[in-house]
């Protein structure tokens, strides 16, 4: 079975935010909730790089590990989803997530955050596929229709890739080979102590 992954090719990302508004559009995500966002490092300096971030659908997801109500589950495709019916809005997953993916609809103290919301890899939630009930809580379920997340499908420069981890890794590998220099990926320098000359 395929494992679904996101990969943002930092050499291609131009911070156009198409992924952000595509997500808003597809799922009617309300103001203030950002299932996806674009982060820019070294903004305005040489070596500026942007990367589009959302839930990374971790293999061993920390959010899942800390959830006191076991609201999370991983689908057969490797997508990490959760049930808003079970979620109590405690915010543990927010602390556990290294990517800042969990979002909460309300601002306030004392557990008034509301049900957690995050990227679903356009795969809905535990309700039956493509129902109004599923849509109301999680947005559309593109995966069930054989489509990929709209953020990646609409990416302006084909920077954000989504799909079967093996396939997107192959696409990325081919690109890096053609470019003929270190990947330019976010974190490359930290990992390999190698300066990127583009």
């Amino acid at each position: 079975m395929a494992r679904m992954k996101f990969l943002c090719d930092a050499d291609r990302c131009i911070e156009c935010n198409a992924c952000v508004t595509a997500c808003k559009n597809e799922h009617e995500v309300p103001w203030g909730i950002n299932r996806r966002r674009v982060v820019t490092l070294n903004d305005g300096k040489p070596g500026e790089r942007s990367i589009s971030m959302a839930c990374m659908h971790c293999t061993d997801a920390p959010c899942q590990a800390v959830c006191p109500t076991n609201a999370f589950y991983t689908t057969a495709d490797g997508v990490v989803l959760h049930s808003k019916d079970i979620c109590i809005g405690c915010g543990y997953c927010f602390y556990a997530c290294p990517f800042g993916a969990p979002q909460y609809p309300r601002v306030g103290n004392f557990g008034s955050r509301g049900k957690m919301d995050k990227c679903t890899f356009c795969a809905g939630g535990p309700e039956a596929d493509n129902t109004v009930a599923e849509y109301a809580q999680y947005g559309t379920n593109r995966l069930a229709e054989g489509k990929l997340p709209l953020c990646a499908e609409m990416c302006s420069t084909k920077s954000l890739l989504a799909g079967d981890g093996d396939i997107i890794a192959a696409i990325y590998k081919e690109r890096v080979t053609k470019r003929g220099y270190g990947s330019g990926a976010w974190g490359w320098k930290t990992a390999y102590r190698e300066t990127i000359a583009t």
């Binding site: 156009c16 198409a18 992924c19 508004t21 595509a22 559009n25 709209l150 609409m154 990416c155 302006s156």
Partner: peptide, 10 residues
């Protein structure tokens, strides 16, 4: 080829 920017996707 299917792509948009923030404006086109909205």
């Amino acid at each position: 080829r299917g792509s948009h920017c923030a404006k086109g996707a909205a």
